[in-house]
């Protein structure tokens, strides 16, 4: 028995449903409806990030520091801050970035680019070294191979720790190319390759699961709020 259809009267639901169908139409072949939805998506995304960039970065970090009184326009109740001349430096670097629009002055744009790359690299190096290297080593071997709790040996955690350690070491050995992978050394490297394959498989499976969840979400929107079947 097919449930009765109750079409939504909400314009927002209709726009979402029609754009979803336009994107799905690509399964048939490339067509003007798909192109329209694609262009709308790109345009809306660009506009959204531009507005977000202005209100979350440019406005508080630059405009309000150079023109504190402007804060009254966006937040009448908020206290007016002090003028911060240091903000002139990022303002100048930002203007230099725009010099790339004129070929004769484009070389000026290299300075803010170099500054941004250098500071980002230096700042991120410390963060990544701590979070993705030191803490990961600690997580791999930190609790030891035989963790206990209240004097009781936790055999499941021990097995998991052993697997993680063995997988990490064998995975690293697989990438050592200065020694021929033969004999026992080769078997460890092949085990490392197997661990890598399982990891990539799990990663791919998770990605597929995520995409299917998105599809399920779109169908729930189409069949629920739009058609009123669910």
């Amino acid at each position: 028995m097919i449930a009765a259809i109750h079409l939504s009267g909400d314009l927002q639901v209709w726009i979402g449903a029609l754009l979803t169908l336009m994107v799905f139409s690509f399964l048939w072949r490339d067509n003007p409806f798909y192109k329209f939805a694609e262009h709308v998506f790109v345009g809306v995304s660009a506009a959204y990030w531009m507005v977000m960039g202005f209100w979350t970065t440019l406005w508080p970090a630059l405009v309000l520091k150079l023109f504190p009184a402007a804060g009254r326009w966006s937040s009448p109740e908020a206290p007016v801050g002090a003028w911060d001349p240091v903000a002139l430096i990022p303002a100048a670097l930002g203007l230099l970035m725009l010099a790339r629009l004129w070929p004769r002055l484009a070389w000026l744009g290299k300075w803010p680019t170099a500054f941004a790359l250098g500071t980002t690299a230096g700042y991120s190096l410390v963060r990544y070294l701590r979070s993705d290297f030191l803490y990961q080593i600690e997580a791999t071997i930190g609790t030891g191979l035989a963790p206990t709790s209240a004097g009781r040996w936790l055999w499941q955690e021990s097995l998991a720790q052993l697997l993680v350690l063995a997988g990490t070491v064998s995975g690293l050995i697989y990438f050592v190319n200065t020694r021929e992978q033969r004999g026992a050394y080769g078997r460890v490297a092949r085990w490392g390759l197997l661990v890598l394959m399982i990891t990539f498989g799990a990663s791919f499976g998770s990605a597929v699961m995520g995409r299917v969840a998105l599809l399920v979400g779109r169908f729930q929107e189409l069949l629920g709020p739009w058609l009123g079947i669910l």
């Binding site: 803490y135 597929v208 995409r211």
Partner: peptide, 16 residues
């Protein structure tokens, strides 16, 4: 997080 991004976060559990 999304399913696509999840694998990169598994190593951070439970320490971080």
């Amino acid at each position: 997080c999304t399913g696509v991004g999840a694998p990169q976060f598994f190593p951070y559990y439970p320490l971080q």
